[in-house]
Amino acid sequence: HPLQNRWALWFFKNVRSQPWQCNLRLVTTFNTVEDFWSLYSHVQLASKLSSGCDYSIFKDGIEPMWEDSRNKRGGRWLITLSKQQRHSDLDSLWLETLLCLIGEAFDDYSEEVCGAVINIRAKGDKIAIWTREAENREAVTYIGKVYKERLGLSSKVVIGYQAHADTATKSSSLTKNKFVV
């Protein structure tokens, strides 16, 4: 069952003695439903990764970094998790994120999606969907609403969208939300 896009899985492991880009590795690409599950069943669950590691899944050809031309004008819908949620929610939220991407869950706005990233961090894990154009309010808010619904988040929970240009110039905890849903 072919997917609309070919996707690439990237793995980042923080080795402080090496430059950031040396710690980022392309694992493999896939473009069928079957190959997605084959890959998913062979890699470590996100909750089992050590702190400082990331998984990224991006459309093939887009590198999982702000600097990529397809990302630099974009931003991310950011889900921040408490430490406790690593064991209760992290893996299911990440899988749901992956299913949103490969299934093209955002209808015509799926073309705006670049990829998704999960950061495993001692202070709290993060999951984000990256889109390519932060100024495209209609697309960004549609994606945010569908994503929040797919994650099963309560209407009381607010998630924010941050432009990469803002994140790059500030520490992420201080980055202002461009949109919220």
Partner: peptide
Amino acid sequence: EKKSYDREFLLGFQFIVASM
């Protein structure tokens, strides 16, 4: 035609692939 799949369809393949 756009190839989109809902979550139930995608999840249905998880165990088919795992049993292959």
